[in-house]
Simulated scan of single mutants.
Amino acid sequence: MDLEIRHLRVLNAIADAGSITRAAAALGFTQPALTAQLQRIERALGGALFVRDGSGARPTAFGAMVLAHGHGILTAHDDLMRDVRQRGPDDSDLTAVRLGSVPGPLTAVLVTTARQLLPRAEITLHTCDTEEEQLELLATGRLDFGLVVDYPEYELTLRPGLGEALLAVDPVFVLISERHPLAASPEIPLSALSGEPWLAGENKDVRMRAQFRAACRRAGFAPRRVQRLSGSVVFPLVGQGHGVALAHPLVTEREGVVVRPLAGDPMAVRQRVVWAATSPLAEHAPALHDTLTKAYWAEAQRAGVYWEWLEGKGRLPTVAGPSDAE
């Protein structure tokens, strides 16, 4: 793993806070997520950076050296980004659009939409491990627009200076084998899957997992087994009857696998377009949101099971206009 600016910010936050827990709160991370990030950084650098005990976290001698160099790098980087943000929207060199997303069914749609809206710009995509990472990159000006996913009752709070526009709030569906006894059901109660092994991709979103566990508790059971696997093998394993999996409703059916709604909508996913309000590209946010919304519902219509479900429920798109976080 190469050391990046975001890693230096993590180290700086821990040193300033004197505690991983306090640093996680300041960065908008969960404490386990920040601990895991610190461990990856320490493995990459080859040594412990902090002594962690009951009183908090303090730099080791090695950590103090890294922090000293990192402070100079962060200062230079922040000076650069300040100058970049001061460019006017009419500057002739505004030709790069940096997009971010945790991999999902709308990631490619986001790129396509941006290229349609800004055909002369160079579009780049950064795929993030977590939504917290993506929000950090947006807040620090390293991304222009992000497609941010969270979950009702488990929402991500935006940092000051970020704008947002709601794209959609969708139910969570389930993938099952076409040979499963419930495959012919138009909707499946979550409780009917209480005895199934659950197959999950390598998603690091703790909020999604918390929502799933809470939904299972409300349905009266604890998941029998949750196995985390590469996303590329989830569909084949489900198709061969080795388990079931949660899915976004835009996911299309594949050979041997059907997508089914969960009765009563026990889980939901929310999608937003987020941007830095001070970015020179912020003026394009309303147009990007409108274009992406049209593309999103075109995708929903192509996802036959979801479109039929929407029609059957009489549901209209849930869309809100852009706003800036205070």
Rank of each mutant, 00 (worst) to 15 (best):
E4R: 10
I5Y: 00
R9F: 02
N12W: 12
I14Q: 03
I14G: 07
D16E: 08
G18L: 03
S19M: 04
I20H: 04
I20V: 13
A24G: 03
A26H: 12
A26L: 10
G28K: 13
F29V: 01
Q31K: 11
Q37C: 03
A44D: 15
F50S: 07
V51T: 14
A57M: 01
P59L: 10
T60G: 07
F62W: 04
L67I: 03
L67R: 06
G70A: 09
I73F: 10
T75G: 04
L80F: 06
V84N: 08
R87H: 10
D90T: 15
V102K: 13
P105T: 12
T107H: 04
A108P: 01
V111G: 08
R115G: 07
Q116R: 12
L118Q: 10
P119R: 01
I123A: 12
I123T: 13
I123Q: 11
T127R: 14
E133C: 01
L135Q: 10
L138A: 12
A139C: 06
F145W: 08
G146Q: 13
G146F: 11
V148D: 07
L162V: 04
G163L: 07
G163Q: 07
L166Y: 01
D170W: 08
P171D: 09
V172R: 08
E178W: 03
R179G: 05
R179L: 13
L182D: 04
I188V: 14
S191M: 07
G201K: 00
D205P: 09
A210D: 13
A214M: 15
R217I: 01
A219G: 02
F221G: 01
P223S: 03
Q227R: 15
V233Y: 02
L237A: 00
G239K: 00
G241C: 04
V244D: 05
V244K: 06
V244L: 04
A247W: 02
T252K: 13
E255N: 14
V257M: 11
R260I: 07
A263F: 06
V269L: 12
V269C: 10
W275D: 08
T278W: 07
H284V: 11
H284T: 13
H284F: 07
P286R: 05
P286K: 08
T291G: 02
T291E: 05
L292H: 05
T293G: 04
K294T: 11
K294Q: 14
E299K: 09
A300W: 05
A300M: 08
R302Y: 00
Y306M: 02
W307C: 10
W309A: 05
W309H: 11
E311F: 00
K313M: 14
P317W: 14
V319E: 14
P322S: 15
E326N: 12
